[in-house]
Amino acid sequence: MTVKQISIFVENKIGNLAEVTKVLSDAGVSLHAISLADTKDFGVLRVIVDDSYLAATTLKEQGYIFSITKVLAVAINDEPGGLYRILTLLEESKINLEYLYDINTRKSDYAYLIFKVGNVEEAIEVLTKNKVRLLCQEDL
């Protein structure tokens, strides 16, 4: 019920972001979602890819520093209040949401968001109990 996110350390220098995307595309890795968080001197590039294993081995070979994190791909009803409902469910269970960003999938009935939560297992339990749809890696 989770998807794998790869977080890559990127120094704040012109061309560094382009370089990572080139490394991944040269290896034939395709990106489903991408988000960049940055500070004064460095950034963390978070990606969801079609082949995490290929992406990880490629990055490792190229000397990149990265980590793999389990995140949730949550289906949101594409209507007003869709996101609010889910955030309320998490809040009521006191589950901390660290960040979120959107993801494109071939499924068009819903909008999908990537959620990084404090307690993954608990979040899965709360959300599935409330009939919120979560995607697995294979669904992407």
Binding site: S7, T39, V44, I65, S67, T69
Partner: peptide, 15 residues
């Protein structure tokens, strides 16, 4: 130089 041990997905942890 950043190392795998120092790195984390969380910006606040790195900071």
């Amino acid at each position: 130089e950043m190392t795998p041990e120092m790195f984390s997905d969380s910006i606040s942890e790195i900071s």
